[in-house]
């Protein structure tokens, strides 16, 4: 497993760093592990346009490019961050692994909403999800990488409609959430926009309980069909998934840490 993983994800010693940029940590590893776990599906998905919102150190977008395969041309990667140091560090991390992505210094996807709408086949997001005082949200530097305001939802709730807007018809979104963010409520909110969801990884660390959720458009569901009854059934099925994936818990012996 270790060598398999090493060949297909960014190597920690090659990930660049800066004191104002969030370093890969449990949440980043969980997101990349979710992508690895879903690798067969990702390869079959044949994405053309992949995007990361909030690329930080570049660990995740680099890993996504490696998972999809350096040898496979025909995939364009875009990564954004609001922190000028983060996009610089991401460039170094990509270069160190011999992969490439287009980097844009911007707030979420500002400037891309019009022309990139409906084009993104795979989106990955490790948002600032930590519950913090409101005034820390969007502060300069490294704080912007974690400060999520009330329930850690301030930035997540801005990202979700943007993701919905940018994703293609076959688009997938992988997002990190914390129990405090109320992931079931996030899934319900996306359900109303027509998305199905699945927890790919649920992992408890000393400090937090992380869920990596995958969203995809479910054309069998229209807004009208989302009744209270179906929501209850949906919640039940969501909760039922958790034990299935609890095998991942504790198996997080990260060689990288």
């Amino acid at each position: 497993m270790a060598s398999y993983k090493e060949n297909r994800t960014a190597r920690i010693r090659l990930v660049s760093s800066h004191n104002e940029v969030y370093e890969p940590c449990d949440d980043s590893f969980a997101l990349v592990d979710a992508l690895l776990a879903d690798r067969t599906n990702l390869l079959e998905h044949c994405p053309t346009m992949c995007m990361e919102i909030g690329c930080g150190s570049g660990y995740v977008i680099t890993s996504l490019a490696l998972i999809l395969g350096r040898e496979r041309g025909g995939v364009n990667y875009i990564a954004t961050d609001i922190n000028p140091n983060a996009v610089k560090v991401t460039r170094e991390t990509l270069d160190a692994h011999g992969v490439d992505a287009e980097l844009i210094l911007t707030d979420i996807a500002s400037g891309l909403e019009n022309r990139l709408a409906g084009l993104v086949d795979v989106m990955v997001v490790n948002p600032p999800y930590v519950p913090t005082p409101e005034d820390e949200v969007g502060a300069e530097g490294i704080i912007s990488s974690w400060a999520g305001g009330e329930n850690g939802r301030r930035v997540i709730d801005r990202i979700l409609p943007v993701a919905d807007h940018l994703l293609s018809e076959k688009g997938w979104l992988y997002m990190v959430t914390l129990t405090a963010n109320n992931p079931s409520e996030i899934c319900l909110q996306m359900r109303k926009k027509g998305y199905a969801s699945k927890i790919i990884i649920q992992r408890s660390t000393e400090e937090e309980s992380l869920h990596i959720i995958k969203f995809w458009r479910d054309f069998d569901t229209t807004v009208d069909e989302v009744t209270d009854q179906s929501l209850i059934g949906f919640l039940g099925s969501l909760l039922a998934q958790i034990p299935l994936f609890s095998l991942w818990r504790g198996s997080n012996s990260n060689d990288n840490c």
Partner: peptide
Amino acid sequence: NKGIPNMLL
């Protein structure tokens, strides 16, 4: 700069 557009407002 260095190939990265700055779209921050």
